[in-house]
């Protein structure tokens, strides 16, 4: 769905179907999939399937899942996908205002991260695995670093979306790429030097580092094709579409990988409880 959405933006097809929630006045008819309609209506159809699957997920989780927080996560996925659909509709009806289109782009990846988190936490490995607890005594803690990664990536996502939707220049996105690279590299190096023996941490850390490198290359290519060479393009050209869509897709993978790393760090390398709850400790000591 993220790739389908990125194709809509890259092909400038966001308003090729001018109405919403209907498509050319119909709730169910599939229009002729040519030109921009091919991208926009396909995106709508994939979104409908994703929405349906999320409803099934939420109902299923509500019925069988014992963990309350996981049930809440599945409701969050449902709420996100509903809000995402409505944002998609608003952006069509208001002719793609940059703020709404960017919110639509950011919420798509939020939904993706929630779905990935649910997949991780309901997986066989998560259920059966006995976590190797190693208390993290370095400061800032690895968990704090992973949260910083998610934060800077989210900022980067919004800056990128604002640029793509003509709400901002390209340079804040490029400038923040330096910050993102630094924070993510710091986190990956910390994770790999101290906890490389924990597979659940090593794998997402290596993936994250690889994706950062790939994303920087794709970002550079997208900049060349879209900004430097494609400034006066009379229509979206294949190199600019491929590079920008790949940049969006790898960006989503990077954010999801970072979320996985944060979850695994939270599980395997916790910060000692007495440091997180100093009041509880002092109470216990007093007792």
């Amino acid at each position: 769905m993220i790739i389908a959405g990125a194709l809509v933006t890259s092909n400038d097809a966001g308003l090729s179907v001018p109405d919403w929630p209907t498509s050319f006045g119909s709730w169910y008819k599939i229009p002729k999939l040519v030109g921009g309609v091919k991208f926009e209506h396909t995106h709508r159809m994939i979104a409908q399937v994703a929405g349906l699957l999320t409803i099934i997920l939420a109902v299923w989780t509500a019925r069988v899942e014992k963990r309350r927080w996981l049930r809440i996560l599945s409701y969050a996925a449902l709420g996100t996908v509903i809000a995402q659909g409505i944002l998609g509709g608003i952006t069509v009806l208001f002719y793609l205002p940059p703020a709404v289109s960017s919110a639509h782009a950011a919420l798509a990846q939020t939904f993706f991260c929630i779905a990935v988190a649910i997949a991780i936490c309901t997986g066989r490995k998560w259920i059966e695995e006995q976590p190797r607890i190693e208390f993290d005594e370095r400061r800032p803690s690895l968990f704090t670093l992973t949260l910083c990664c998610i934060f800077v990536l989210y900022v980067q996502l919004i800056l990128g979306a604002m640029f793509r939707h003509h709400g901002l220049s390209w340079w804040p996105h490029v400038l923040n790429a330096v910050v993102v690279s630094f924070v993510l590299a710091w986190t990956a190096v910390r994770a790999l030097t101290l906890y490389s023996q924990v597979e659940a941490i090593r794998r997402p850390a290596i993936t994250m580092l690889s994706l950062v490198i790939a994303q920087l290359c794709l970002g550079f290519t997208a900049f060349l094709t879209r900004v430097a060479w494609g400034r006066d393009a009379v229509q979206p050209e294949l190199p600019m579409v491929v590079s920008t869509v790949a940049h969006v897709a790898v960006g989503a993978l990077l954010l999801a990988t970072t979320v996985i790393l944060a979850i695994q760090v939270w599980r395997h390398v916790p910060v000692a409880l007495e440091e997180r709850l100093p009041d509880a400790q002092s109470d216990a000591s007093a007792a």
Binding site: R67, W69, Q130, W266, R267, P270
Partner: peptide
């Protein structure tokens, strides 16, 4: 397996 100890 999960929720091993109390967290914030």
């Amino acid at each position: 397996p999960d929720l091993h100890f109390k967290r914030k």
